[in-house]
Design a protein around this nucleic acid. Structure first.
Lengths: 337, 337
DNA sequence: CGATTTATCCAAATCGATTTTGACATCTAT
DNA sequence: ATAGATGTCAAAATCGATTTGGATAAATCG
């Protein structure tokens, strides 16, 4: 493995000159040519760890997602997010370190920050408490961008998809389609996005003077099975809602199936609205009308913000919200007059 | 940011002793206690880039996936694969660098190897030519494990899901269910897994003395749309097959839809078999019977092999095959006597 | 023409850990 | 009692790049 010394020897110059030639500093034409030739001949590439040590940075950021189990499913949005981040990093010559951690091992991230394993990090906290803990443990000046907003924590830097707006959009969309009796299948209470969606949905329903039966709101676990069970409970009520807003697509699939099992046609007999716009939304039948979360865009913007923080550019501490939108497919139908 | 020197000064010992105390080498009880106390007091964590430079390794591996576009179908198996890799690395204290590259920028990986950006890499080449190019360009002793087998390249280290067996399994499964008239919707020809599946499927059909119409075999692009179109062509044939084997789940969804559009019920009128067992397989209706690729397991085994190579343990150069299996759901029905 | 700038380059210092070398006690064995 | 282990630790070398602080020669300026 060739080093600057080897190049210097072969080119007949000092290591200083080699470094300068390779990094675009002023050197004579002659030196430049000889260094370049020598570097070419020895297939030289400067060793990253040496550059990192000297530079005090490692030219890479971390992207960490908190997930309790190595749940292989339920992650239909990961790839576009990774792609968005990757695209921005490539532009700056940075690379991405990725990992999946559990809520009980978030201190692994603190360690990574302390040992300068990455120059900054992007975190998808998912669960309540994670953001707070990280903000307490991480060095105060360490660049972090959260990709979800935890209502309990005042995150200084956050690029998140606006869950409040998303749920509001969902309810108002159903309302606009004539629905007045709206049921919901929510997610786990420890899930930060879920609590935001819940609060917002209730608020909007109140604002629109909608009333609902207790049985119309069921709690699920973001998977198909719990969506199925939740929908069965909803459909067991004396009076049925005309539409059900499921807090993610997988539960909506379960709800679809439950409706079909009791002989209800979707959307003719009951409408079902999903959330996320993951792969399954397009693949189900009827295809799901759902709320799309623009995660590719989110990945790009979060990575951009983080890079600016790393470059010490002045960034105002604030939450950057990204608006979700309705994707109309075939599971919601207009009702009433 | 505290360094060994700071700890040494505070503990009243030399940097040597600090390093030894922290790395479990022999030091006196007294020294150990004082070093540990000092390290605790200063919240000391050794800087990774310094350790890396000295050690000649960076304690991280790369996982790279070659993909030209934001192919959504990657969602389905990317996460479990990442999870499998992550689990193994956590065990060794290694971290993962992840990136998505295009077939025209594979030389970025060579650069990463040459500049010692990672200690080894896992590659999902996807396209023909990628494996060959990497094997030519990468330093001969650089640890690489390919996660797909390219028939054109003799990969020394490879942990792949056996596509030959997968397609064979698919055809034989349909055969066992009584199907004799089998159609296929294949994938793009430049896709390494696809050519393996095609060869194998044809071989098995011959072995079973099956005959098929030219129109029964259509080429798709691994997405829903092309599956739909392919199926439409198949169903336009004078004689229809009793089952169609789609080379991935997305195309199977499209095929399902096409069948339904021409008034055919699945599986009563025609059976459809998918491949991959991604999220959509469970979410479609009818739920897809498909061939599962155990990607979590694959991720673990590939990472394991790579770690052994990095640790210089003697590993015999060979392809490690992982067997896919049939997941029976509701899109294939037994026919005939 | 002498004084200062400018271009070019090198030797040595630096980043922060680990490892090597060797010094000094203290202990064991003959 | 003396030769040789053994335990403990410090000084200095090392990993491989970049940066600092001069040095020298050529170019520019008053």
């Amino acid at each position: 493995m060739a080093t600057v010394k080897d190049i210097a020897r072969l080119a007949g110059v000092s290591p200083t000159t080699v470094s300068w030639a390779l990094n675009g500093k002023r050197v004579s034409e002659e030196s430049l040519r000889r260094v370049l030739e020598a570097a070419q001949a020895l297939n030289y590439h400067p060793k990253l760890s040496a550059r990192s040590l000297r530079a005090g940075k490692v030219f890479s950021i971390g992207f960490y997602i908190v997930n309790p189990s190595l749940d292989p499913r339920l992650n239909g949005y990961l790839f576009p997010m990774l792609a968005g981040i990757s695209k921005v990093l490539a532009h700056d010559g940075y690379s991405m370190q990725f990992d999946i951690i559990t809520p009980s091992t978030v201190d692994a991230l603190t360690k990574k920050a302390l040992e300068h394993s990455v120059d900054g990090m992007l975190v998808l906290p998912q669960f309540s408490g994670v953001t707070e803990q990280l903000m307490e443990d991480l060095p105060k000046d360490f660049p972090v961008v959260f990709m979800q907003s935890d209502p309990a924590a005042k995150t200084p830097h956050c690029v998140a998809i606006d869950q409040i707006k998303g749920a509001d959009l969902a309810i108002r969309y159903l309302y606009a389609q004539g629905h007045r009796d709206i049921g919901m299948i929510t997610g786990p209470v420890e899930h930060v996005d879920n609590v935001l969606r819940m609060r917002s949905a209730y608020q909007t329903m109140q604002d629109l003077h909608l009333v609902w039966e207790r049985a119309w709101v069921q709690q699920g676990e973001f998977d198909i099975e719990s969506g199925y069970i939740g929908m069965k409970h909803i459909l067991a009520a004396a009076k049925k809602p005309s539409a059900v807003f499921c807090f993610n697509d997988y539960m909506a699939i379960g709800a679809l199936r439950a409706a079909s099992h009791v002989g209800l046609r979707v959307p003719q007999d009951i409408s079902i609205l999903g959330f996320d716009d993951t792969d399954v939304a397009e693949a189900s039948s009827p295809a799901l009308t759902t709320i799309q979360q623009p995660v590719f865009d989110q990945g790009q913007r979060a990575a951009n913000l983080l890079m600016r923080m790393i470059k010490q550019e002045e960034v105002t501490a604030q939450v950057e919200w990204i608006s979700p939108m309705v994707v109309e497919r075939a599971s919601v139908e207009r009702v009433g007059s």
